[in-house]
Amino acid sequence: MRRFLSQSAPSRDKNYKGGIKDYAIKMGEIGKFSKQLKLVDYVAFASDLVSAGATIVEAKPEDRARTTVVETTKLGTGILTGAFTSVLIIGLATGGTGLVVIRVVAISAMVAGKATGDITGWIAGETYDAINDYQSK
Rank of each mutant, 00 (worst) to 15 (best):
E71L: 00
S11K: 08
I20Q: 08
K137N: 07
A9C: 11
G113F: 00
K74V: 02
R12Y: 04
A9I: 14
G31H: 11
D118T: 04
V43S: 09
W122N: 10
A124P: 10
G28D: 11
S51K: 03
I20N: 01
N132C: 11
V104Y: 04
G18Y: 13
S108D: 04
K114E: 04
F45L: 10
T73F: 00
T77A: 06
E58G: 04
R66H: 06
L88R: 04
A109K: 01
R103L: 07
A44M: 06
G28W: 15
V50M: 01
M110H: 11
E126W: 00
L75C: 02
Y42H: 05
N15F: 13
Y128M: 09
A130G: 09
L75V: 02
F84W: 06
S51R: 02
R103E: 15
Y134F: 07
K35P: 06
K114M: 04
V50Q: 01
S136P: 05
D63S: 09
S51E: 03
N132Y: 15
V101R: 08
Q135V: 02
T94L: 09
V40R: 02
G76Y: 00
N132D: 14
T94F: 07
I56A: 03
T73E: 02
V100A: 05
A124T: 06
A65W: 02
K74S: 11
M110V: 15
R12N: 13
S136W: 10
T81F: 04
T97C: 03
K60C: 01
I89A: 01
N132W: 15
M1G: 15
I131R: 13
G96M: 05
E62A: 12
T72F: 05
V43A: 12
E62C: 07
L39M: 12
I107T: 10
K26A: 13
I102F: 00
G31E: 11
F33K: 12
V105N: 06
